[in-house]
């Protein structure tokens, strides 16, 4: 590599979406609801439509409770019992909503795999790490136990776990938080899924280890061409990996754009708020900007952001704004955006 790369070039080149790649996932009008008190339903994801191309990273951001996890669980077929799903999810040409539970089991691991914020919740605490990865390979790839274990060690090496042979013999609690997340990623990638769903994979980690895990995801994407749905409440973290970004608020998509467009020209008041709340080490301020209020509680009538939005007026409290494409590939749901 040459020495001085101009910063602008990096920003431009990095954020470019992947328009020419074939589509991998198409979610159309996805809604998820749960039966609530007094027979009333609570809709936690509403009419969500988005796509992910092969080898692309879609960043999903929003505060806690916005429906990010429910969206991921829907495409994994892992929603809790009682959840009602409508809309369609198309993966590699297959309609997932028509899947039987056997088809879902086959889909998970092979086509899509997921990593969670806390790897301990997804790992078996009393089984050695290498064995857990091997088990996935035995199930999906029909490898012999011996071959699967050897492959598990290779996978641990590929996520840069030092002394992988020895680490394969460790139980999850014997690994540091960062190493557990690496092992979780190794397990997720065991069968070379086309899509990796990463739900807040770095939120519980130190910033240094977070940087390592982000590097690892970029590297694996480069090597295997895996598409990634990367979820975080932190827009700055998302900006480090995403080609395209979807901003969610209270179960709805409020803005959806190529990452470079979103940062160059954030249109939705919520997106603008999320950007402004980030502490910026280039410009310290005595008083940080905050979005008043919080996501929880009763949804206001009209636009769901109207009780926190600095621009809200009477119209915003009456009707919900529809998502519109206001510039090429840049979608936003707000009355005040032309």
């Amino acid at each position: 590599m040459s020495v001085a790369t101009p910063a602008l070039e990096v920003v431009g080149a990095g954020h470019v979406a992947q328009p020419d790649r074939p589509r991998l996932l198409r979610v159309s009008s996805l809604s998820v609801s749960f039966p609530g008190a007094e027979g009333r339903e609570s809709e936690v994801v509403s009419e969500l439509s988005y796509e992910i191309a092969q080898g692309e990273t879609l960043g999903v951001v929003g505060e806690s409770g916005c429906g990010k996890t429910m969206t991921s669980l829907a495409i994994m077929g892992l929603l809790p019992t009682g959840a009602k799903v409508s809309g369609s999810i198309e993966f590699d040409g297959k309609d997932l909503t028509a899947f039987s539970s056997r088809q879902w089991r086959c889909h998970r691991g092979r086509d899509v795999a997921m990593v969670f914020q806390e790897p301990m919740t997804a790992m078996n605490p009393v089984m050695k790490v290498g064995q857990q990865i091997a088990e996935v390979l035995v199930k999906h790839e029909r490898l012999s136990k011996r071959a699967a274990f050897g492959r598990a060690v290779e996978l641990l090496a590929s996520v840069h776990i030092p002394s992988p042979e020895r680490r394969a013999q460790d139980y999850p609690h014997q690994l540091s938080g960062g190493m557990r997340q690496r092992a979780m990623i190794a397990m997720a990638l065991a069968c070379r899924p086309k899509l990796l769903v990463a739900d807040e994979p770095t939120t519980a980690l130190d910033v240094t280890v977070q940087a390592q895990i982000l590097d690892l995801m970029l590297e694996l994407q480069e090597t295997y061409g895996t598409a990634i749905q990367f979820i975080s409440h932190n827009l700055a973290v998302v900006s480090e990996v995403a080609h395209r970004i979807m901003v969610m608020y209270s179960g709805r998509m409020v803005e959806y754009a190529p990452a470079e467009d979103l940062f160059a020209n954030p249109l939705h008041p919520y997106t603008q708020g999320l950007i402004r709340t980030l502490p910026d080490i280039a410009q310290p301020m005595a008083e940080l900007y905050t979005i008043p209020g919080s996501v929880g509680g009763k949804r206001p009538s009209g636009c769901r952001f109207s009780n926190r939005c600095p621009l809200a007026d009477a119209r915003c409290r009456e009707a919900e704004p529809a998502l519109r494409e206001v510039m090429p590939s840049h979608h936003v749901a707000c009355f005040k955006v032309n």
Binding site: L214, L235, S239, H243, A259, L278, D280
Partner: peptide, 18 residues
């Protein structure tokens, strides 16, 4: 300092992490 995520940098160039 290097590891603090920032929106102004764009997509990261791998290999900078400690």
């Amino acid at each position: 300092l290097e590891s603090v995520p920032r929106i102004s940098r764009g997509r990261r160039k791998p290999g900078q992490a400690l």
